[in-house]
Design a binder for these strands. Structure first.
Lengths: 183, 183
DNA sequence: CCGCATCGAGAACGACCGTTCTAGGCTAGC
DNA sequence: GCTAGCCTAGAACGGTCGTTCTCGATGCGG
């Protein structure tokens, strides 16, 4: 087995288990079993659980933002900034409706570990900053793109939380609020 | 020591420790030490850690909503629904600026435990529902109080998350967005 | 003053977790 | 074919956590 293949298998296993059940509820043995990788190799690739968790978060960040950007590209590529930003909430609605939706992995990780571990905290902060930067890019052309993007982000984060805890049509409500912000 | 006094001391200790450091990072022994209560009595009052956590969340919910309502009462009592709802964000800004602000205890608890424990999940959901109901009450007089209140809640939840992870003036941005929603 | 029930302090227990170690097997070069 | 080096599976270790147990102290009725 190649080193990169083992790394991919570990990240896939970590993502499936950590996102579904939480980080502290999943032990290293379980990740190793699912990935089919020896414990020694796991610790050679990720010298501690914090490293593995940070790797999981970074991998998920990349895939999450790629999925979001792909959707917006496909549905509002040549639209104006307002339509592009509203498309974000359409994608959120589809995400929330997935059967294995468990909220935002980064908000959850923050709640579990928070600033107690620097590696994990940095990965969470980076993800939220990159999300913000992406929204700022979508807002390009508006009068105050940064302010608008940060308000849109606040709505998106709130929708993720509300949808996870209370369910319901959180994305639709957030989209309505976003329309007001963008008017 | 009275039973009720022991209960109060336990809840105060649990709140201080759990909110500051997270739930799974604080053991029962530490709660017992800070509360000055015997372990036997702790388990007589709360037959498991989940019960204690749920008790902590319910106590915090009551105090949190009372503080919020007190502020709104004091600063926008006889104002209209728009001013009352905006006052919520002024209070959030003051809360976020407290030195020991660690985000929303309920969002954090959801991220840590989530639906894995029914007692905790129910306490979290109930808090968010009560917050929603309070906002619906503040929105009384608007055309669509429920829709507006839920959009305001989305902004508030997003502000709590963003403020905890990224810092900055999340409450101010959320307030600006709320002004747009309420226009 | 004695017997009894209650209670508190902390030891003890079993489970689990992150991490390291060990023993055995496979591979490759000579 | 043999040996040296790497890999794996899984045992082992130290620590921690939630929970229970032990045991001695204390208060009280007779």
């Amino acid at each position: 087995m190649e080193h990169d293949e083992a790394r991919e298998r570990l990240l896939a296993a970590a993502e499936a288990l950590y996102y579904a059940r939480g980080i502290h509820a999943v032990g290293m043995d379980e990740v190793r079993d699912r990935a089919g990788v020896s414990l020694a190799r796991l610790y050679r690739l990720y010298p501690s659980k914090a490293h593995l968790v940070a790797g999981y978060l970074r991998a998920r960040d990349a895939r999450w933002r790629a999925r979001l950007a792909g959707w917006v590209e496909a549905h509002a590529a040549d639209a104006g900034p307002r339509a592009r930003l509203l498309a974000v909430f359409d994608w959120l609605g589809r995400w929330f409706a997935e059967p294995d939706y468990r909220g935002c992995a980064f908000i959850n990780a923050w709640g579990e570990i928070g600033p107690a571990d620097d590696l994990v905290a940095a990965a969470v902060r980076e993800h939220k900053e990159l999300f913000r930067d992406y929204l700022v890019g979508l807002a390009d052309g508006l009068e105050q793109p940064v302010d608008v993007a940060e308000q849109i982000q606040t709505l998106a984060e709130g929708a993720m939380v509300t949808s996870a805890i209370l369910g319901g049509q959180a994305a639709v409500r957030a989209r309505s609020a976003a329309e007001a912000v963008l008017r």
